[in-house]
């Protein structure tokens, strides 16, 4: 694992500060606006269709686990699926959740049980609907494809980390005519989802999903903070490009961790601290 460069230290602290400030502002009653995201609005439509057809829904949180690489993505997927389960429970729908990582089963069970309770139908939750299939990619894909075809699910929700199995799952859903909503940070799989699914959540919309669906002030505040950070990054990119073009690559060098006065100064702090220590 790498360690933070001086630029990373400053930038990450700044990002954290911006996000926390906006979270606190939202918690203190400030109302923020989030634009409409069609893919997330379609969740209600997909759940409603399943209720009309009297068929279950199927959700997959992908191949990610609780590790450093995919942990946040998977927990976000689980949060989205919890919201879907809450909506589904209001109609008395079953939601099937095939799993790859067994360590996520207790968390998924607890989240969905809570979601069904929030939806006012705790008795509609069944433990057996959350099933561990396999921790092998294609065995999992085969299992999910089988469930889609056997249960003739009305809607399929695919959120999380996906690899080559994405198309196997999405094409099977498409084949049986299920409404499919997908969202993944795995950029290489987005084209497959666009080709096979009805609605796709692209890019950082994935991380905005819980805020959009629940409208909780804390989450909405974090999303606004996130957008401010994006604006800051874009400004730095523009400024860096202009300055580099003018022969003054200060912004570029700072983030590339090359010797410039500010970076020198920041480098000298830990060295001085070590000498002092």
């Amino acid at each position: 694992m790498d360690h933070a460069t001086p630029a990373a230290r400053i930038f990450l602290v700044l990002v954290a500060a911006i996000v926390i400030i906006f979270v606190l502002r939202a918690q203190n009653g400030k109302i923020f606006f989030i634009r409409r995201i069609p893919g997330l609005t379609a969740i209600d439509e997909a759940v409603g269709r399943a209720a009309e057809m009297g068929r279950p829904l199927l959700a997959s949180i992908g191949l990610g686990g609780l590790n450093a690489t995919t942990g946040v993505i998977t927990l976000q997927a689980l949060a989205i699926v919890s919201f879907i389960a809450e909506t589904a429970s209001k109609f008395g729908n079953r939601i099937l959740l095939p799993m790859v990582d067994p360590s996520l089963i207790p968390i998924a069970e607890e989240s969905l049980r809570e979601a069904y309770a929030k939806g006012g139908r705790p008795e509609a939750f069944h433990d057996e609907d959350i099933i561990f299939l396999s921790d092998q990619q294609f065995a999992y894909a085969a299992g999910v494809a089988g469930m889609i075809n056997r249960e003739k699910v009305a809607s399929v929700f695919l959120f999380g980390t996906f690899y080559a199995e994405s198309l196997i799952i999405a094409e099977n859903g498409n084949r049986i005519g299920a409404i499919q909503v997908a969202g993944t940070p795995s950029t290489t799989q987005i084209p497959f989802f666009i080709a096979a699914c009805d609605y796709v959540i692209i890019g950082d919309e994935y991380y905005a999903a819980t805020a959009y669906l629940t409208r909780q002030p804390t989450l909405v505040g974090a999303i606004v903070g996130q957008d401010i950070v994006k604006g800051l990054v874009l400004t730095l990119i523009l400024l860096g490009a202009i300055l580099s073009s003018a022969g003054v690559p200060m912004v570029h060098n700072f983030f590339a961790d090359k010797a410039v006065p500010l970076a020198d100064f920041l480098h000298s702090i830990p060295a001085a601290a070590r000498k002092g220590g």
Binding site: V19, T214, I223, G225, K230
Partner: peptide, 18 residues
């Protein structure tokens, strides 16, 4: 940026309700 923001939310247990 979204990942970073979500990680902060999870680390500080701000992700209430989920």
């Amino acid at each position: 940026v979204g990942l970073l923001s979500t990680a902060i939310r999870l680390w500080l247990s701000l992700e209430r309700g989920s």
